[in-house]
Nucleic acid binder design. Structure first.
Lengths: 189, 189
DNA sequence: TTTTAAAACTAACAAATGTTAGTTTTGTTT
DNA sequence: AAACAAAACTAACATTTGTTAGTTTTAAAA
């Protein structure tokens, strides 16, 4: 587990830099400098720059995948599921806001296999989200707005939390969950 | 979207590429290839890669600046102003969705002067937005949710329109405006 | 036809990039 | 103290990068 620790340190430092400038603009020398070592030394711990990116993105995408599947399989109505999804996004954002920047902005720089895997997970995530909203509308729990508009407006806010929440000092997680549920859902019911 | 002069064609092509891969990952050879010419030929029309980026971003930021100032100076209540802001974002998105990708994701690659200018405009934009929401709450037109959460959730959706709307076929601008106003504002009143 | 300006080209540059190879330092275990 | 593995180092590499210089092509005006 020793090399794994150092490796994770590198990945965390990379996530911070990727958030600031994006994957392509961050050089291995930038990353090494942030770690206080030389670029070549990074390769004692990681195989490539690409490995760092895929490590950041795939693990987060899998968190969302398992999260939404678990929520979707629960015996609750659409509104309760949407509330759980909001909490899921807030929890992941609290745990790894830096990495979410790469997930949102640098997924297209994944190489072929991981790119396909990521795109599959995102597609399935959105399909589940869409299905929940549709069921909610059919059950009369959600107003009959255009489904795509509901999915987009909700998801766009949740996906952008990573940019905004770390800068907020006076909003604690529980207050955020409560208010976000109000703001995003009260208009839909 | 008539091809004005050659420079504007290059900027438009660049905006498309920047949207796909981000500013840093697009090379001048990529751009030239998309234009069907050699990289060196680009420099008959533009001064630098940086000039292309600043041209895209600054013109859009100025559109939003003048737009929100004009809205804010009108004699209407907070809700009507927010409706106008939603329409502003939809109009700009329809006119230049590609450029908005750079505005959102590549502003940090602007060089010093333009970076400061952009950041000033964005700060002022958000300040006006925030002031409108605060007035609306004080006037009793908007529920007493946390101001920052309202500003963030609304703005995050509007700023992400460029990613989503070009892919929608069956939603025309007027329907979009109507539904977006409903989804974003009905929960707030 | 000649002239001219715009816009393309070829060739090259210095700097920056991700990465490899081989070596030395560091710190722990025997 | 000796041995060993982890993790740092120096030095270099082949490409790729944005950009410049100088030249040729294109097409319209004279």
């Amino acid at each position: 587990m020793k090399p794994e620790n150092r490796k994770q340190e590198i990945i965390n430092a990379a996530a911070v830099l990727f958030k600031e400038k994006g994957y392509s603009a961050v050089t291995m020398r930038d990353l090494a400098s942030a770690m206080g070592i030389k670029a070549a030394s990074l390769y004692n711990h990681i195989q490539s720059k690409q490995e760092i990116l895929s490590n950041i993105i795939i693990s987060l995408a899998e968190e969302f995948s398992t999260g939404i599947n678990s929520i979707n399989n629960s015996e609750t109505n659409a509104i309760q599921k949407l509330e759980k999804i909001i909490e899921l996004h807030i929890d992941v954002t609290l745990r790894n806001a830096d990495g979410l920047a790469s997930l949102n902005n640098d997924w297209m720089h994944l190489e072929e296999n991981n790119l396909l895997y990521y795109e599959k997970m995102r597609r399935e995530y959105e399909d589940i989200f869409r299905a929940i909203v549709k069921k909610g509308i059919r059950a009369g729990d959600i107003k009959t707005y255009d489904v795509e508009i509901i999915v987009f407006s909700t998801l766009s806010t949740l996906r952008t939390l990573y940019l905004w929440y770390p800068k907020q000092k006076k909003i604690n997680p529980e207050l955020l969950k409560h208010d976000m549920i109000s703001v995003l859902l009260k208009g839909l019911v």
